[in-house]
């Protein structure tokens, strides 16, 4: 059984966002790039499943659509434990295009289980996983917070409004994972970093996909006015302000 984790390369979550002078793009200079937090947890879970005694998973691949600058992020995924990596060589304009490219890769390589994160922390879409599943005709389940293999089936838990559901699905299958899928992301070991250098990272040519949307401008939130501080000895003043000024209680 072959498993694919789709990796989005994103700015570190503490990055302060600056825009280019014409607001057409985000100023990416000096940014630390990382594996999207959910994808890191998805990879962690994939490795846990592969390491379980008697696991039917033979190989874990990672794939990312993007330019050569993201290769260190894929190398990190290899250092964490993925067996091989694919980079689809294209600067994607939107999620639709990413999904089309990933679909072409999946068709060529035939993966039985695909894991995507719930959303990228950059352009926050929550789109690629569902789009990819539909392109492939795969069953998809979103907001997955636990995942286990059970023979040729997958047992999983998903969050829904006000609760959780335990589901069974058959393969092939795509899971869109969120919090809970793994708790702490794995970090690369020294040995992992050494072996990552020799693991295959294949660059695949883009398949000629096209985007349906484009970012045409950006803006930053307006600065908040200063916090109104209330004296700790005068809590009732806070209640009065919330009631009379903010009118929220």
């Amino acid at each position: 059984m072959k498993l694919l984790v789709c990796i989005s390369n994103v700015p570190d979550t503490t990055t302060k966002i600056k825009l280019s002078p014409d607001n057409k793009s985000v100023d990416l200079s000096g940014i630390q790039w990382v594996i999207n937090p959910w994808d890191e947890l998805a990879l962690t879970r994939a490795l846990e499943l592969k390491e379980t005694a008697g696991s039917s998973i033979e190989k874990i691949s990672v794939a990312s659509v993007g330019t050569a600058e993201l290769e260190p992020t894929l190398r990190k995924a290899l250092a964490i434990g993925a067996d091989d990596a694919f980079r689809i060589d294209l600067n994607p304009q939107d999620a639709y295009q990413v999904a089309e490219e990933l679909a072409a890769l999946v068709k060529a390589q035939s993966f039985d289980i695909i894991l995507c994160g719930i959303e990228s922390s950059d352009y926050n879409g929550a789109m690629v996983g569902g789009m990819l599943a539909e392109q492939l005709g795969y069953t998809s389940v979103s907001s997955v917070s636990s995942l286990n293999l059970d023979g040729s089936n997958v047992k999983l838990t998903r969050e829904i409004d006000g609760g959780k559901q335990n589901l069974t699905v058959s393969l092939p299958f795509l899971a869109i994972v969120q919090k809970g899928i793994a708790i702490e992301p794995r970090i690369p070991s020294m040995r992992g970093i050494m072996t990552a250098r020799t693991k295959p990272l294949t660059v695949v040519a883009a398949s000629g996909s096209s985007a349906l949307t484009a970012v045409v401008g950006n803006a930053l939130p307006t600065a908040k006015s200063a916090c109104h501080m209330v004296d700790a000895e005068n809590v009732s003043e806070l209640v009065r302000l919330l009631h009379e000024e903010a009118k929220v209680i």
Binding site: P11, I17, Y123, N124, T213, V215, V216, N218, A219, P221
Partner: peptide, 14 residues
């Protein structure tokens, strides 16, 4: 975008 740290104007072409 960027978890609420910025906004983007997205043009839909379809």
């Amino acid at each position: 975008t960027f978890s609420g740290k910025s906004f983007s104007d997205v043009e839909v072409k379809s």
